[in-house]
Design a protein around this nucleic acid. Structure first.
Lengths: 121, 121
DNA sequence: CTGAATCCTTGACGATACTG
DNA sequence: CAGTATCGTCAAGGATTCAG
């Protein structure tokens, strides 16, 4: 049994399935960054996610990799260098991520919780 | 302290904020049903969510209500009758829900996990 | 019919420290 | 730099029963 995430019991419901895929404290944003800023290294990614511990970041990245959304490329150099990039599959949710961002920005504004720019974090 | 959901510490990050709003085992589908099938009663809703206990359904509905996505209308009759409907605010995520559904359907298919129709559950 | 009450499990996530 | 290891917390969700 190769590790189950809580909702791998996902019924054949498209919406539930999709949401489960991007469930996780930072998955959505990670994908968004890789989408809008391109390939990134581990630390680079982490710097963009204030409050995200390496432990958690690793876990979410591994899950995204499992789900074929991103690739993980290790370079045999010192100091170590690992790059994360979107796959073609990962790129297919791009439009949704952009919409989530846009809608969320509007929502935050309606709530009076201004954010200065349209940045994702 | 009026009850906190785990991620109410949501940073002013639009994507994270949005995902947190529809996080929850059934929230997405509930919204989808209310969007595509219109106003629904409690039991009606539950019948569409196999495996969802009333306890959980109530909770998620209350949260959606708190977030102004849906309204809860109680009719003073016996037996009780309560109707849930999307608000205008709730309707604004409609496009995203539809896209989530569509993308998810494609994903499930690519995964070989056929679903017969385009139904959401 | 629409929940509320109670009790319980679990896994998502956090803090801190350490390493090749 | 890119993680592991270890320990701990806590809220999400499950099961069951009861009630207006």
């Amino acid at each position: 049994m190769p590790k189950r995430r809580k909702y791998d019991e996902a019924p054949p419901c498209a919406i539930v399935a999709t949401l489960n895929l991007i469930n996780g404290r930072w998955k959505g944003v990670v994908l968004y960054y890789l989408l809008t800023k391109g390939t990134m290294r581990f630390n680079e990614l982490q710097r963009h996610l204030p409050g995200c511990t390496p432990r958690l970041l690793v876990k979410q990245l591994r899950e995204l990799e499992e789900d074929a959304f991103i690739t993980r490329t290790v370079y045999a150099v010192v100091p170590p260098k690992v790059e994360y990039a979107l796959t073609d599959e990962g790129r297919t949710i791009g439009p949704i991520l952009l919409q989530l961002n846009e809608w969320g920005a509007g929502w935050l504004e309606r709530r009076g919780l201004r954010q200065k720019t349209a940045r994702a974090a």
